[in-house]
Structure formats: structure tokens, C-alpha cells
Simulated scan of single mutants.
Amino acid sequence: MRLLFVTLMLISLCVNAAQPLADLRANKLVKIAHFVDFTHAQSTAIRFCFYDLSTGVGQAFIEKPDLEVNPHPVDIIDLSESTKNPELLGRCDITYFEGKVDNDILAPWLKILPVNTLVIGDNFEFLANGGVIALIQEGDKIRLYVNKESLEQVNFKIQARLLSISKFYPN
């Protein structure tokens, strides 16, 4: 009985530890959006797109319905159906990939993304496959890494203030 109790406590601690990291990444995404000039913006809202709104960063956004970016409201788009409707991809200002994404899925997807979409992930593999920004955990901090090559190919501006606190990939 004790073993069961300890096991359940450990599992709940692991689950609870993952959510603060997702909240931290969600807050970073909103801060990043403040420093991006979306000259192409077709709507008054900044549109954040996620593949999963039930866990992680997508869930953290859903739980904060009153988010704003430079006083624009935030729209949240679920991309879980984007394979059936590729037109959804063109609606995104910022798309966030969470976790490891298989190369055979990620690389082709990044090639068809509009150059108006800021693509953000959470690992170096994502940057190596053409992602623009990655929020990478280093110790107890989340560091911002920018892919210089991908940044040159996009159709929006990232302000110098954000770039000055970023690390660049590849070094």
C-alpha cells in the first residue's frame, strides 16, 4: 500500500513539474511576439498555432484566455487537422512545435510553411531542420536560440532587442 502511495506521489510530482515548464514557455512565446513585426498581418489578432491544445504549451495558452500582444488579442488555432486542411497553415503568425518531431514529418512541413509564419520549437534538432527559434531548457532557465539561416528567409522582422538576448544557431 505504501509503495502504491509513493508511486502515485512521484507520478503526480512529475506531471506537475511539466506544467510549470509549459507555462514558462508559453510566457516566453508571448514575450517573443512583442518583439516581432508581422508586416503581413491580415487580422488584428496575433494567431498562435499548436498541434496539441490538450497538453503542454498549447494547454497553457488555452488556460489564459485574455492574452494580448501589443494590444492585439491572441487567437489560438488548433493545427491537429492541418494534414487534412493545409490552408490552416497560412492562418498562423506563430506556430509552436513541442517535443521531438520525426524528421520525415518536420522537414517537409517546414518547407511548405508560409514565410510569414514564425516557427518555434523546443530543441536543437528543430533548429537543424529549419526552425527559426527554439526555446531550449538549460538548467532551470529557458534560453532563446535563433537559426540565422532560417531568419534570413522569413517575411517579418525580429527586433534587435530580442536578437541581442538570443544565442545563435549554428554558433
Rank of each mutant, 00 (worst) to 15 (best):
M1Q: 14
L4R: 05
F5P: 01
V6A: 15
M9I: 12
I11S: 14
I11M: 13
L13F: 05
N16F: 13
A18G: 07
P20E: 09
P20R: 09
L24Q: 13
R25M: 10
A26Y: 02
A26I: 06
K31F: 02
V36I: 07
V36S: 07
T39Y: 02
A41H: 10
A41F: 04
T44V: 13
T44D: 07
A45K: 05
I46A: 13
F50Q: 11
Y51G: 12
D52F: 10
S54M: 12
G56R: 05
G58R: 09
Q59K: 15
F61E: 05
E63V: 10
P65E: 14
P65V: 15
V69W: 02
V69P: 00
P71S: 15
P71G: 15
I77F: 01
D78I: 12
L79E: 00
S80K: 14
N85A: 15
N85R: 10
E87K: 12
L89A: 03
G90P: 00
G90L: 10
R91E: 07
R91Y: 00
C92Q: 08
T95A: 08
Y96A: 13
F97G: 02
E98M: 01
D102A: 14
D102P: 00
K111W: 02
P114F: 04
V115I: 09
L127M: 07
V132W: 02
I133D: 05
A134V: 05
Q137F: 01
E138H: 00
E138K: 09
D140S: 14
V146Q: 03
E152Y: 00
Q153P: 01
V154Y: 03
I158N: 02
A160K: 08
I165T: 12
S166F: 11
K167R: 09
K167Y: 06
N171Q: 10
